[in-house]
C-alpha cells in the first residue's frame, strides 16, 4: 500500500466582485476557478514524487490541500491508510506531525522574532509531549542533521543567509519525525551553489530516514535529480505520470514534450526539440471541454474535443491524450 494516496482531488475557488456577479446572472450559478480538477496520484514510502507544471497549473494548490491549508471540494487524501479529508481538526492535528511542509520563500516562512532554536522547537511544543530538556536535545540533533552548527542556534533569521534559512525550515519540518514532507519549490529562491547543497541535503535526509517527499517544482533539472516518479500538471489535471527516467527519455504527452523542449540545458551543442505550443495557458475559469491543451497543441484533431482517456502506455507510464 502506498504511503500517501490522493484520489480525484478537486479544489475550487469562488470568484468575487462585479464581473463574477454579472456572470452569476448570466449563467445562473456563481463562477468558480477549478484550480485542481480531479487529480490522483500515489507516493510509495521512501520515494519522491515530483509534481511539475507551470504557474497556475494547480500544483501548489495540491500541496496546500494535503496539509489542509486549502479545503478540497471533493476527493480523497489517504496517509498511511487514514482518510484525511473527513478528519475533524483535533484528529487532523494528531496526523500533522507525520505530514510536514517546506515552502518556497525561506524568509517569509520564518518568524523574524524567533531564534533558530525556538523556531525549530515550536513544532515540538505543538505536536509532542516532550519535556523541555528532550525538546532541546531533539532541536540540537535536527539542526546538526541539516548542517547548522550549535553556534547558529541562538541567531535570528536576519543573521542567516538564504541557504541557512531554508535549512532552518527543513529542520522545522523534520523535527517531528514526519513520514511525508511536502516540498513546494524549496530551492527556487536559492542561488546556484546553495541550491545544489540543499538538493543534496534533501536527498541525504530522505535516504537516511526513509522519508517520502512530494516535490513541487517547475525546475525540471532538479526534478530529474531528486524524484523517482514525476506527474505533469496542466490546468488543474495530471496529463502524464511516469518513472522519472522514462518520462525524461520518452515524454508522451504534447505538453510534457513542449515543457522538456523549453528547458535550456548547459550545452551549446544540445539539439533542441523544436516542438512548441502556441499561445498561453488559458484562464482556469473557462476550461475548454475535452483536452485542455487542444487550443495550443500543434497536433490537435477534432477528436481532442471529446473527453480524454487515460492510457497506460508502458508499465507505470500513464498519459491523458487522444493521440498517444
Amino acid at each position: 500500500m502506498p504511503l500517501c494516496e490522493v484520489q480525484d482531488l478537486q479544489v475550487r475557488f469562488p470568484l468575487r466582485g462585479l464581473q463574477a456577479w454579472l456572470r452569476t446572472l448570466k449563467d445562473g450559478a456563481p463562477p468558480v476557478v477549478r484550480a485542481v480538477d480531479g487529480v490522483s496520484f500515489a507516493i510509495e514510502a521512501g520515494t519522491t514524487l515530483g509534481l511539475v507544471g507551470e504557474s497556475g497549473c494547480g500544483k501548489s494548490t495540491v500541496a496546500r490541500s494535503l496539509v489542509r491549508l486549502v479545503e478540497p471540494a471533493a476527493g480523497s487524501i489517504r496517509l498511511d491508510g487514514t482518510e484525511l479529508t473527513t478528519l475533524d481538526d483535533d484528529a487532523f492535528a494528531r496526523v500533522r506531525p507525520s505530514l510536514q511542509m517546506v515552502f518556497q520563500d525561506p524568509t517569509a516562512s520564518l518568524n523574524p522574532r524567533l531564534s533558530v532554536r525556538r523556531a525549530v522547537e515550536e513544532p515540538l511544543k505543538l505536536h509532542t509531549d516532550l519535556a523541555a530538556t528532550e525538546r532541546r536535545a531533539r532541536t540540537d540533533a535536527v539542526l546538526e542533521e541539516v548542517g547548522l552548527g550549535a553556534d547558529l542556534a541562538e541567531r535570528y533569521p536576519h543573521e542567516l543567509s538564504g541557504g541557512q534559512r531554508q535549512r532552518v525550515n527543513i529542520a522545522r519540518a523534520l523535527a517531528t519525525n514526519p513520514r511525508l514532507v511536502v516540498l513546494d519549490e524549496p530551492t527556487s529562491a536559492l542561488d546556484v551553489s546553495l541550491r545544489a547543497r540543499v538538493i543534496l541535503l534533501l536527498e541525504e535526509l530522505r535516504s537516511r530516514h526513509g522519508l517520502s517527499y512530494l516535490f513541487i517544482s517547475h525546475d525540471l533539472a532538479t526534478v530529474r535529480y531528486l524524484t523517482s516518479r514525476v506527474a505533469v500538471m496542466y490546468l488543474g489535471v495530471i496529463v502524464e505520470e511516469a518513472w522519472t527516467a522514462e518520462l525524461f527519455a520518452h515524454p508522451a504527452h504534447p505538453y510534457t514534450r513542449a515543457l522538456l523542449a523549453a528547458v535550456p540545458v548547459p550545452d551549446p551543442d544540445a539539439k533542441r526539440d523544436p516542438f512548441v505550443l502556441s499561445g498561453e495557458i488559458p484562464s482556469p475559469i473557462d476550461i475548454p471541454a475535452g483536452c485542455r491543451l487542444r487550443a495550443r497543441c500543434p497536433l490537435a484533431r477534432p477528436v481532442c474535443a471529446e473527453p480524454v482517456p487515460v492510457r497506460e502506455i508502458a508499465p507505470g507510464h500513464r498519459v491523458a491524450c487522444h493521440l498517444v
Partner: peptide, 15 residues
C-alpha cells in the same frame, strides 16, 4: 559541475 541537468543524469558537486 554544480548544476543539475534536465537532459541527462549527472552527479552534482556543490561549490
Amino acid at each position: 559541475r554544480s548544476i543539475p541537468r534536465a537532459d541527462r543524469e549527472v552527479t552534482m558537486e556543490p561549490i
